[in-house]
Structures are given as C-alpha cells and as structure tokens.
Amino acid sequence: MRRVALLSLLALVAASAVQARDVVPAERRILPWDANIPACQDPSVLENITAAFASREDKFWTEGLRLVAYEQINPVAWRPDGLDLIPRRFCTAVAHVNDGRKRRIDYVVREDLGFAGFGWGVTWCVHGLDRHWADAPGCRMKRP
C-alpha cells in the first residue's frame, strides 16, 4: 500500500513538472514586440547581409570575397519556438560569391536585433565560410 501511494505521489509530481507554461504572445506583453519584420526576400534584408559580409571579409579575412546575388530564397520557419518568444523568421538561400561559387546561406531576421536593440536585424552564416565556427556545425545555429 505504501509503495502504491509513493508511486502515485511521484506520478503526480512528474505530471505537474511537465505541465505547459502559460503562453502570452509577445505582442501582448507589458513591453510588447510587434512581430513586424521583413520577409526573407526583402531587399533591405539581403542588402544588410551583403554589406555585413563584405565588412567582415575586409576586416578579418582580407580575401576580397563578396556576395553578389541571391537565388532560391525560401522561408524555413516563422516563430518556431512559440508565440511568446522574440519574433524570428528563419530563411535559407543560395548566394553567388564573387569567386564564382554558389554557397548556401542560412539567416535569421529577428525583431529588436537592430542598432542598440531597435528595429529588426539579421544574423547569417554562409556555408563553408564560417571560419571562426560561431555557427558550427555547418551553420546549424542559424536554423530552427
């Protein structure tokens, strides 16, 4: 009898521990997000990536690589972690690099990632050019 009571108590504790948390959409918080971020193919997103890539290449790698065009731009996920977290849009594309190669690029457009935390911003990873392994393995940190 005691063993059954103990097992019942453990089951009750385990069940309460895995209950879902309250989900309050980010747009309804006291300091809300508005979830108004550009689409994957938005020119301003792609220009942001192009400029940041060029800056990083010039500053750290000095190989003169540039992203010159994009194709096969596709959304991967919109808010995959839930409505109560910072709005994010995960995207992928094929980038044409000025060395003649085409490389996959994964990127995340996120609210409040802009200058000083205002507006939207984008973080990205070009496959084969993540030389400092910040998004390793294989740019995985830029995918949901």
Rank of each mutant, 00 (worst) to 15 (best):
R140A: 15
A95F: 10
V18I: 12
F90C: 03
P87F: 07
D58L: 07
A35H: 12
F90W: 06
Q41S: 15
R131V: 04
T123A: 08
P43M: 09
F90Y: 15
E27W: 00
G100I: 01
V13R: 00
V13I: 14
Q41F: 07
F53L: 08
D99H: 00
A26R: 02
R28H: 12
A20D: 09
G119K: 02
V109Q: 02
N74I: 09
N48P: 02
L113P: 00
A17E: 08
V24K: 07
L83Y: 10
R103N: 15
R88L: 05
R131Y: 13
Q19F: 04
C40S: 06
P43I: 06
D84Q: 14
A134K: 09
C139R: 02
P80T: 03
D112C: 14
A11R: 04
P38Y: 03
P38G: 03
R104M: 12
G121Q: 01
Y70D: 06
F118V: 12
G121L: 08
D34Q: 11
L83I: 06
G117V: 02
V45F: 02
G128W: 01
I86L: 13
L85H: 14
A52H: 08
A52T: 12
Y70H: 04
R104D: 13
R56M: 10
E47T: 11
F60L: 14
N74T: 15
V109H: 05
Q19T: 12
L12S: 14
R101K: 12
R131G: 10
G117Q: 01
L85D: 13
V122K: 00
G64W: 07
R79W: 08
E63D: 12
A77P: 01
R110W: 00
I105F: 08
A54Q: 05
D81F: 07
G117A: 04
R29Q: 14
W78D: 13
R103K: 11
P43C: 04
V13K: 00
D58S: 14
E57N: 09
D58E: 14
A15N: 13
Y70R: 01
V76Y: 04
W61Y: 15
R104Q: 15
R28T: 07
L12I: 15
C91M: 06
F60G: 07
C40H: 07
T92Y: 06
D42G: 08
A77M: 01
L113Q: 04
N98L: 04
F90M: 01
P25S: 08
S16A: 12
S16E: 04
V126E: 02
L85G: 14
Y70I: 01
A39F: 08
V109A: 08
W78Q: 15
T62M: 13
P87D: 02
Q19A: 11
P75L: 03
W33C: 14
L83E: 15
C125V: 00
N48A: 13
A69W: 05
G82R: 09
A14Q: 02
P75I: 04
W78V: 14
A15Q: 09
Q41C: 04
R131K: 12
L31P: 06
G82Q: 05
